[in-house]
């Protein structure tokens, strides 16, 4: 068994493996597949709860991942934001000296969540400028005039 605490390097190596087989396109194809086949819970939570669905989704995952983060929800403004002070995934990849992380490891966070949230009526803004220090931020904003359900 690969322990769930060993998943992140397994994930990183999978991206490298795919790129070696089919280039960048093969990695993107997989990320799209993952968004469509693994993130159904995020999609459902947002459909059922509006922007609060983001809060419910990431409140579960980031706590289980023991992340160092600030999370904000403003339902009136239709905005949700995460500031990742130290990403547990990228942080571990940077700490392990015997493995080389996939060069665009953090790119999956841009592709996957965008693919789920934008068709549901949200703008997804992901700042990866400090990813090499295991820091990032994301903002999800309800699009003007989008017919999104709420509580």
């Amino acid at each position: 068994m690969i322990a769930c605490t060993e998943f992140i390097p397994a994930y990183s190596e999978l991206f490298k493996f795919l790129e070696s087989r089919g280039g960048r396109e093969a990695v993107l194809d997989f990320w799209n597949y993952l968004a469509d086949n693994f993130l159904g819970n995020l999609k459902s939570l947002v459909e059922e709860n509006g922007i609060r669905g983001c809060w419910l989704y990431w409140n579960h995952t980031l706590n289980e991942e023991a992340a160092d983060f600030t999370m904000e929800l403003d339902e009136d403004a239709g905005e949700f934001r995460i500031v990742m002070h130290h990403c547990p995934s990228k942080g571990r990849l940077l700490e392990w000296q015997h493995i080389e992380p996939y060069h665009d490891y953090c790119g999956h966070c841009d592709v996957l969540y965008r693919r789920v949230l934008e068709p549901s009526g949200y703008q997804y803004i992901f700042d990866m400028s400090e990813c090499d220090r295991a820091k990032c931020s994301l903002t999800v904003r309800r699009k003007e005039g989008a017919g999104v359900s709420s509580l």
Binding site: A67, D68, F69, T70, M71, D76, P88
Partner: peptide
């Protein structure tokens, strides 16, 4: 508005 702050 809701805010939470967590550390590792």
């Amino acid at each position: 508005k809701q805010t939470i702050r967590r550390t590792a």
